[in-house]
């Protein structure tokens, strides 16, 4: 397919070897797509159009179909994340216990809405749909480490300290 001729990835990039292995393990069948996207995002942190074009070509899938899949699922990102990522759980228990207030505070304090990355690329804010730690609600995850059962005051203090700009 002409679309992918110019998008062959650098052969010496070991990350691509990893992704190729996932594709091969699944015989490069069309149903390998989502597993491959997971592998590519794990390797690169996000999925840019070069990556997607290469995957489409390797799996012999129409590019539009690949794009449709990538944008259907919340987990996949088309843009790189910042140095740090703060995930705020918006599951029901966390909502009831005040994570909506937390998101409002983040908007005021750091001018970030879920999905945004700060202009200095320092912090990405993401909203996660229930991490399943509802008994610890409200829950948030600075760089993937779960923090739960904190009051609003404690939680905001933890975040400010984590980002190194406590008042």
């Amino acid at each position: 397919m002409p679309v992918n001729e110019s998008t062959a990835p650098p052969a010496d990039d070991t990350r691509w070897q990893l992704i190729d292995r996932v594709m091969q393990r699944l015989d490069r069948r069309p149903d390998a797509l989502i597993e491959t996207l997971h592998a590519a995002q794990d390797a690169f942190g996000y999925l840019d159009s070069t990556t997607l074009a290469h995957i489409a070509s390797r799996l012999r899938l129409p590019p539009a179909k690949v794009f449709g899949v990538v944008t259907f699922y919340n987990h996949f990102r088309l843009k790189p994340k910042g140095e740090h990522t703060l995930a705020v759980c918006t599951g029901t228990a966390c909502h009831l216990k005040g994570n909506d207030k937390m998101l409002a505070w983040l908007r005021d304090r750091y001018h970030l809405a879920p999905g945004d990355t700060s202009p200095d690329n320092r912090l990405s804010l993401v909203e996660v749909r229930c991490v399943g730690a509802c008994a610890l609600a409200p829950v948030f995850l600075p760089d993937g480490a779960l923090v739960g059962k904190k009051s609003f005051g404690e939680a905001t203090a933890i975040i400010e300290e984590w980002l190194g700009d406590a008042p």
């Binding site: 397919m1 590019p63 179909k65 794009f67 449709g68 944008t71 259907f72």
Partner: peptide, 24 residues
């Protein structure tokens, strides 16, 4: 194909490329 989902769904060409530059 269709990109995004729900109320944000939209028809999309290739990898969200302008139709005029679609290679397929």
């Amino acid at each position: 194909d269709v990109k995004n989902r729900g109320i944000r769904s939209q028809i999309v060409a290739d990898l969200d490329t302008p139709w005029g530059t679609s290679t397929t």
